[in-house]
C-alpha cells in the first residue's frame, strides 16, 4: 500500500479538482487531516496476504442478462427536461464551453 506518504495540501486540491468540488483553504487543511486519518486507518489492510487472490468486483453470482433490441423508451422530451435548472427550448444549457 502506498503507505506513509502523508497527504499534503496539493494532493487534496488535486483530488478535489478531479471530483469537481470547490474547497476553501481552511477546508483543504481540515480535510488533509481527516482524509489522512481515514487513509491511515485503512492501511490495516497491509496485514492481509492477498497473494493469488482474484479481486471481487461484485457478489452477484450470475452473469449479465441481456435485453432484446427493442425501442421501449424515449419520446419524453418534456419529462427529461422538467427538472432542468436551465434550458433553452428542448436543450439543456451550460456556460459556453471552449474546445
Amino acid at each position: 500500500m502506498a503507505s506513509a506518504a502523508p497527504l499534503d495540501d496539493a494532493v487534496v486540491r488535486r483530488i478535489a479538482r478531479l471530483a469537481r468540488i470547490r474547497l476553501g483553504d481552511e477546508e483543504v487543511s481540515r480535510l488533509r487531516g481527516e482524509l489522512g486519518a481515514i487513509l491511515g486507518w485503512i492501511e490495516q489492510l497491509n496485514e492481509v496476504d492477498v497473494s493469488g487472490v482474484d479481486p471481487l468486483a461484485s457478489v452477484g453470482q450470475a452473469t449479465l442478462a441481456m435485453r432484446a433490441d427493442v425501442v421501449t423508451d424515449g419520446d419524453q422530451t418534456e419529462a427529461v427536461l422538467a427538472n432542468a435548472p436551465a434550458r433553452a427550448g428542448t436543450f439543456y444549457t451550460v456556460p459556453k464551453v471552449v474546445e
Binding site: 433490441d69 427493442v70 425501442v71 423508451d73 424515449g74 419520446d75 427550448g89 428542448t90 436543450f91
Partner: peptide, 26 residues
C-alpha cells in the same frame, strides 16, 4: 441497432433534440 447500448431509447440518427433520451441516458 434499434435501441441504445444500455437503454431502450432509439439509436436512430437525426431526431429532434432530446427526444430519444431515457432517464438512464440522462
Amino acid at each position: 441497432s434499434r435501441a441504445k447500448l444500455f437503454s431502450g431509447a432509439s439509436a436512430e440518427y437525426g431526431a429532434p433534440p432530446n427526444s430519444q433520451v431515457s432517464f438512464v441516458d440522462a
